[in-house]
């Protein structure tokens, strides 16, 4: 199970968090809000499917390219996130 596995690999999780912290402020805000949303919606493969680590890679590349966060995600962040987890089962879907 996603987050649980990541927490059990505590070193990885802390490395992940340290990278999030190094993002520019606008990216960090959006990352934090997305993570908060995903924790609630609960895709089963949040980590195994690489959703959070992949998102972080994507944001780091965008920031390095000098782009603003909403230019890469689009203004509708929720739609972007739902696109990311489309096809992966969520706890919310199971209800």
């Amino acid at each position: 199970m996603g987050v649980r596995d990541l927490i059990e690999g505590k070193k990885q999780w802390r490395a992940h968090v340290a990278r999030v912290k190094a993002l520019p402020p606008d990216y960090r805000i959006v990352y934090d809000e997305i993570q908060r949303y995903l924790f609630k919606v609960g895709p089963v493969d949040l980590i195994d499917g690489g959703v959070l680590p992949g998102l972080l890679d994507f944001f780091e590349e965008g920031a390095a390219a000098g782009r603003r966060v909403l230019d890469v995600t689009g203004a509708d962040v929720a739609a972007f996130v739902d696109g990311l987890i489309k096809g992966s089962p969520t706890y919310a879907d199971a209800d």
Binding site: F58, D71, V72, T73, G74, F80, G83
Partner: peptide
């Protein structure tokens, strides 16, 4: 087309 769409 935005980066987020391509990323998805």
């Amino acid at each position: 087309v935005i980066d987020g769409t391509v990323y998805t």
